[in-house]
Simulated scan of single mutants.
Amino acid sequence: MAPETSFERYRPLLHAELGRTGASLAALDADSRSVSAARDNSNVDDEHDPEGTTIASELSQVAVLARDAQRRSDEIRAALERLDGGSFGVCAVCGQAIAEGRLDARPWTPYCIDHVSGR
């Protein structure tokens, strides 16, 4: 494993991504509240409207996006903890170093390329 200080360059990248993810979560929360308010203030039977997307479908899409953003936020926070703890850049499955190119693309990943699909 490379010295811990060599990974410090990922810290600002992780914090920037955490900020973007937090902004996405806030926007999705606002979208969800807006769609819910529209449903509460309407007596339209959108479930049987052949012309468009249902409000329930829109809420479902927002929920999936929010769940993905929350998962990404959790992954980034875990990467920051690994950075603080000295285990950043080490595959959680095999214990080998994660390739620098992989960390450049996804600095929050806890897996080397060989174990990304086997988690």
Rank of each mutant, 00 (worst) to 15 (best):
P3N: 11
E8T: 09
T53P: 00
S32V: 00
A97K: 03
R72S: 09
H48G: 06
G118P: 00
G52L: 03
D49T: 05
R72H: 11
C112F: 01
S73K: 13
P50M: 07
R9N: 08
G89N: 06
D45C: 02
P12W: 05
L65C: 04
Y10E: 05
L25C: 08
S32P: 00
A16M: 05
L13P: 01
C112H: 05
A37N: 02
H15V: 12
T109N: 11
P3K: 11
G95M: 13
I113R: 15
C112N: 10
S24K: 11
R77L: 15
D40A: 15
S6K: 10
V35H: 02
E8A: 15
G95D: 14
Q96L: 14
S6N: 11
Q70W: 01
D84H: 08
R119Y: 03
A97W: 02
A63C: 00
L103E: 04
W108E: 13
L28K: 05
A105L: 15
G85Y: 03
R39E: 14
D31W: 01
D29V: 03
V116S: 13
D104C: 09
A97M: 13
S42W: 00
T54K: 02
E75D: 15
T5F: 04
V35R: 07
A26H: 08
I113Q: 12
R33G: 06
T109C: 11
H15G: 02
D74Y: 05
P3H: 12
R9S: 11
A66D: 05
D31E: 14
A66V: 01
Q96V: 13
R72Y: 00
L65P: 00
G85R: 13
D46P: 01
I76G: 07
A79S: 11
A2V: 04
A63R: 03
R77E: 10
E47V: 08
E4F: 00
H48I: 10
L65Q: 11
L59S: 04
L25G: 09
D74H: 08
S117H: 09
M1D: 05
A79L: 10
D29N: 10
R11Y: 07
I76Y: 02
R39T: 04
V90F: 04
G19E: 12
V44T: 06
E81G: 09
R102H: 13
D46K: 01
R11I: 04
Y111G: 07
E17G: 03
C94H: 13
S34N: 06
E17S: 12
A97R: 04
S42N: 03
S117G: 08
R106S: 13
L28F: 09
N43V: 02
S73R: 15
F7L: 04
A97I: 05
P12K: 12
L83G: 10
G118W: 00
R119K: 15
G52S: 07
R106T: 14
A26D: 14
C112S: 12
C112D: 09
H48T: 12
T53R: 11
A23L: 09
D31C: 03
D31G: 09
Q61W: 01
N43E: 13
A56Q: 08
V44A: 15
V35S: 02
A99Y: 02
L28M: 08
I76S: 03
E47S: 08
T54E: 06
D104K: 14
Q70S: 13
W108F: 14
M1C: 10
E4T: 09
D68K: 12
T54C: 00
R9D: 09
L28Y: 03
E100T: 15
L13C: 03
M1L: 10
L25S: 08
S36L: 09
